[in-house]
Amino acid sequence: MIRETTALMVRELKHWYRAKVQIFMLLIQPIVWLGLFGQALPLKLPPAMLNGAPDYMSYMSVGMLAVTALFTCMFAGMSVVWDRRFGFLNKLRAAPIPRGSIPVSRILAAMIRAVISALMVLLIALIFTHIPGLAGLTVTSNFDILSGLGMILILVLLATAFAAIFVAIALTIKTQETLFAVINLLNLPLMFASAALFPINSMPDWLQAVAKVNPLTLAVDGMRQLLFAGSIGIYPLWVDILGLLTFSVVLVIIGIVVAMRALKEK
């Protein structure tokens, strides 16, 4: 099980780092967001409104990390559809491997890609702060190794949850066009009905209710508490992490069950 899963995961990761353009496009997006969107929308909000972030760009940068993880996981779904199209999935189905290794390897690969991409965006945001004329992420907390590990843990849990959703969806949905439609249907509400880009207290009540149970909200809420001094979260940090853990465990289980059903011979 472990041997096959690792082999398949390595294959996915090789695809990823060999597709330089894909990585470039993925990173260009947050750069454009940070560089343009932040400039065009100079929200002047007090740190109290921003989870303790010193300025809106710092606030949004954290959101960008989570959104990058979301978008990267989305691509994991695309590769599943391609593999089906080229018969690679059938080749795996004909091999004497536990079927579970197919979704698990993909979820793991997507998670690793998502975390690496998010960390690259973090680096970009940190650099942007020091470039005159640009704005980025200013860390105000006493950031130590423990906070660093906390950030990675949050990103890992968030990415695992999303990867599981998208891999399961892609294994169930057979065509690329339908998958695109479904992904879009999921992505935008997930992104906007959360605390990723805008503070939720200015949202209408119903949207706030949705945003409060969105895993993106939990992730950014947790990360902001780690990055900004005096950040008062929507939830305490441990609730954020426990919530994300629950999300990822439940979604991975659902994802694997759905994937196994989709892979079963008819």
């Binding site: 041997r3 398949l8 294959r11 018969g87 059938n90 080749k91 795996l92 091999a95």
Partner: peptide, 27 residues
Amino acid sequence: GLVPQEMTVDDDLTGRENMILQATLYG
């Protein structure tokens, strides 16, 4: 062993990498 109708070898791996992957999958 199955050699399917479609070309299922992986474009983004080398020939040898494809073979190694296949060997791993078949234990």
